[in-house]
């Protein structure tokens, strides 16, 4: 596990292997899912910290001092929020006996 979320990743892994898959092995599927997750998180991180730290007046092509410091702290804070949300969802998941309570995004209406 490269990107150690609170537990979403591992619980997801076990759910994945349920799926099986004809052409691809469960290992490949798990690795692909993890890769997709990391990329998704990274892209959101890039755009979130751009919105918070980078002036859109574009006076110079480089990051100025203030922007650089802001970006560093922004990444730390984003990881902290990520951990916090992960803990929260894990706690809810345990309360609900492992079910993805109100997970939305597809889980709730099939």
């Amino acid at each position: 596990m490269v990107f150690g979320f609170g537990g979403g990743s591992s619980s997801g892994g076990s759910q994945m292997s349920m799926g099986g898959g004809s052409a691809t092995s469960p290992q490949i599927e798990a690795a692909t899912a993890e890769l997709d997750m990391i990329t998704d998180v990274f892209n959101r991180l890039v755009s979130s910290c751009h919105a918070k730290c980078i002036s859109t007046r574009y006076l110079e092509p480089d990051l100025n001092k203030g922007e650089s410091v802001c970006v560093d702290r922004c990444v730390s804070k984003f990881f902290a929020v990520n951990a916090k949300v992960g803990e929260k969802m894990q706690a809810i998941g345990q309360q609900a006996g492992g079910a993805q309570a109100g997970a939305g995004g597809g889980g709730s209406f099939f």
Binding site: G8, Q15, D40, R44, F78, V81, V85, M89, G107
Partner: peptide, 17 residues
């Protein structure tokens, strides 16, 4: 099942964002 996994992942990262 695979889609639910992917959707859960997106829900998660969308929530963080």
């Amino acid at each position: 099942a695979r889609k639910q996994m992917r959707d859960f992942t997106k829900l998660y990262s969308g929530l963080v964002e």
